[in-house]
């Protein structure tokens, strides 16, 4: 059973000696399955560093991270195969969709299960199921360049969800979209979080969507502060 993500006292230091910079100074965070939380903060506050630590692309300096039921980092110890961890346990949704331009919509989504050694048929079946859930199944054979911005972002969300990861990290997913489409994406993320019991962390600057979160983590100078959000317009 998925248990979201829990972070305790996470620190990240860049460099050594006099030039060392503490980007994260002890971040605590917990996101439950089915929950969508916002992570906001000014430039240089440590948002990207935290996202990279959560995404297992850089190593924290200290602290503890638990993903689902699995400890993935504990004060210097980390799981051995980070590549497989990213593939199987973490979904990513980026500011731009970053779909693979030479794969059609179905294969863009099916690629991740294929990388996890699922058969092509099984992977495509999973992909089509998600595309249907996100209401883009009619573009299943289209190439990314043939999609609108909103459709591309929905396909990117499907790609993030296809392996049913316990956590999805969404980095400014609404930045390139207008208000209506941005709200649409947030609504979809909430639906998917509930449907697939996935914890979703949305890093954003977007004032339009900040009121939609029920819980928000503010990050400033490498430290997070939790506060309740308004949770408007997503039901």
């Amino acid at each position: 059973m998925s248990k979201g993500i829990r972070i305790e006292g996470l620190k990240k230091r860049y460099g050594t000696g006099d030039t060392a910079v503490d980007a994260l100074k002890g971040v605590d965070m917990q996101v439950e399955p089915g929950e969508v939380v916002g992570l906001i903060g000014p430039s240089g506050s440590g948002k990207s560093t935290l996202l990279k630590c959560l995404g297992a692309v850089i190593d924290p300096t200290a602290g503890r991270m638990v993903l689902g039921n699995e400890v993935i980092y504990d004060n210097g110890w980390k799981v051995r195969d980070l590549r497989a961890l990213r593939r199987d346990k973490i979904g990513f949704v980026f500011q731009a969709p970053y779909l693979i331009p030479f794969l059609d919509v179905t294969d863009n989504v099916a690629l991740i299960p294929m990388l996890a050694h699922a058969s092509n048929k099984e992977a495509r079946s999973k992909a089509l199921e998600l595309l249907a859930a996100l209401d883009v199944q009619h573009r299943a054979k289209a190439m990314p360049s043939q999609l609108s911005g909103g459709e591309q972002q929905r396909v990117a969300i499907a790609r993030g969800l296809v392996n049913r990861p316990p956590v999805i990290l969404a980095d400014e997913p609404t930045a390139p979209l207008d208000s209506e489409r941005a709200m649409g994406v947030i609504r979809i993320l909430n639906e998917m979080a509930r449907k697939f019991e996935t914890a979703i962390i949305v890093v954003t600057h977007d004032e339009k969507i900040i009121p939609t979160f029920k819980r928000i983590y503010h990050i400033r100078d490498g430290v997070t502060h939790e506060e309740a959000g308004e949770g408007k317009g997503i039901e």
Partner: peptide
Amino acid sequence: DPAEAIGG
């Protein structure tokens, strides 16, 4: 670096 896919 895979981190290049993540902004910031």
